[in-house]
């Protein structure tokens, strides 16, 4: 139990997917303008990361057996894209309400490097199935944490008129992201 807990915490805080591995910067900067969209996006990311970790695990085993480890990137991209498409098609038919909630974000996630990076790290870390599920949960919680903190800060920044004109908008957001990364660096000890 302690083992799983440490995997979870390490993935969420110490090796935070956005702020220390620099994966998934695009949604981090693009979808963090409003709290509601940030929460929707991270919900969709959680869903997709956990699902794709479960799907890529047996495929990784198969690749290992045939000594095809170097093929992991292309095969995983294929798998994740198919999975997201499949989930989208099924949701649209079976659960229209969930489709409406996640619909905008699902295509964004299809080729997201955070998803691919998580599956590859889980595979290379030599995790068992349960371990990789816990790892992916940790990663997506870390994503949630970072993007929601960012959205909260940006909502406040938008109302701040004291920011010099040259720094308004994206520059101050990037500076904020850098400061957040330094703060999260502290978790590494």
């Amino acid at each position: 139990m302690e083992h799983y807990f440490s995997i979870f915490i390490a993935a969420m805080l110490i090796n935070n997917v956005i702020l220390s591995q620099f994966l998934g910067i695009c949604p981090f900067l693009g979808v963090s303008k409003k709290m509601s969209t940030a929460v929707g996006m991270s919900g969709a990311v959680l869903f997709v990361i956990v699902m794709s970790c479960m799907v890529t695990y047996p495929v990784w085993r198969l690749l290992n057996r045939f000594n095809l480890n170097y093929m992991r990137t292309i095969i995983f991209i294929l798998l994740i894209a198919t999975l997201v498409q499949l989930v989208e098609i099924i949701l649209r038919k079976m659960m229209p309400s969930l489709y409406k909630a996640l619909g905008v974000y699902l295509p964004l996630i299809t080729t997201n490097c955070a998803v691919l990076g998580t599956t590859i790290k889980a595979a290379e870390g030599g995790f068992s199935l349960l371990e990789s599920i816990v790892y992916s949960l940790g990663v997506s919680c870390g994503f949630f944490l970072a993007i929601v903190i960012m959205a909260g800060i940006r909502e406040r920044l938008d109302n701040n008129k004291d920011i010099p004109k040259a720094f308004q908008g994206m520059p101050i957001t990037l500076i904020t992201a850098g400061l957040m990364a330094i703060a999260f660096f502290g978790f590494g000890g």
Partner: peptide, 22 residues
């Protein structure tokens, strides 16, 4: 390996698209 998995993925998507057609 890549070819077969690509084919399989395409097949699954095609079939799913037909079954879950809206």
């Amino acid at each position: 390996f890549a070819g077969i998995s690509g084919l399989l993925a395409g097949l699954i998507l095609g079939v799913a698209g037909k079954i879950f057609y809206v």
